[in-house]
Amino acid sequence: MLRLWGAGLILAAPICFSLSRWMARQQQDKLLAAYIQTLELCAGQILCDLTPLPELAVLLARQGPEALRGFWQTLREGLSQTDYSAESLWRAALAGTSLSAAAREILAPVPQALRSYDTDQIVRELGRIRMELTQYRARMSETFRRDFRLHAGVQVSAALLLLILLF
C-alpha cells in the first residue's frame, strides 16, 4: 500500500507542477487580454468623448475588465493626489500587478501617449502599444506551449524512470 502511495506521489508531483505553471500562465494571459481590451476601450473613450484620464480610471475601475479593476482603482486614487506625475502613478500601479517585466515595459509608454494634444495620435499610439502587447501575448503563448510540452514530457518521463528504478 505504501509503495502504491509512493508511486502515486512520484507521478502526481510533475503533474501538479505542470498544472500550477499552466494556471499561472492562464492568469498572465487573462491579464494581458484585459490590458489589450482596456487599451481599446481607452482609445474609444478618448476619441469619442475626450474622456480625461481620471474619469477614464473611474469608469474602468467600475465597468472595465474585471481583472484590471484594482489597477484602475489604484491609479484613480493616485491621480487624486497632486504630487505625482501620471507616469510615476502608472508605473506604481503596474508594479502592483502580476504582469511580467517585459509586459510592463510595453505598457509603460501609455501615459506618455496620453500627453499628446492630438487624439488621432493618441489613438495611433495606443493602437501601437496594443499591437505590441498582442504580439507579446502570442509570443508568450507559443513559447509556453512549446516549453510546457517539453517540460511536462521530461518530468513525466523522469517520474516514470524513477518508478521503474524504485519498483
Binding site: 478618448i46 475626450l50 474622456t51 480625461p52 484620464l53 481620471p54 474619469e55 491621480l79 497632486t82 506625475s85 501620471a86 501615459p111 496620453l114 500627453r115 499628446s116 494634444y117 492630438d118 487624439t119 493618441i122
Partner: peptide, 19 residues
C-alpha cells in the same frame, strides 16, 4: 509641465482647443 498636467487632469487632449 506639472502645472499643465494638473490643470488638464493629465489629459491635455481634452483641452487642446483652449490650449
Amino acid at each position: 509641465q506639472a502645472v499643465l498636467d494638473r490643470a488638464t487632469s493629465f489629459s491635455v487632449y481634452r483641452c487642446a482647443d483652449s490650449i
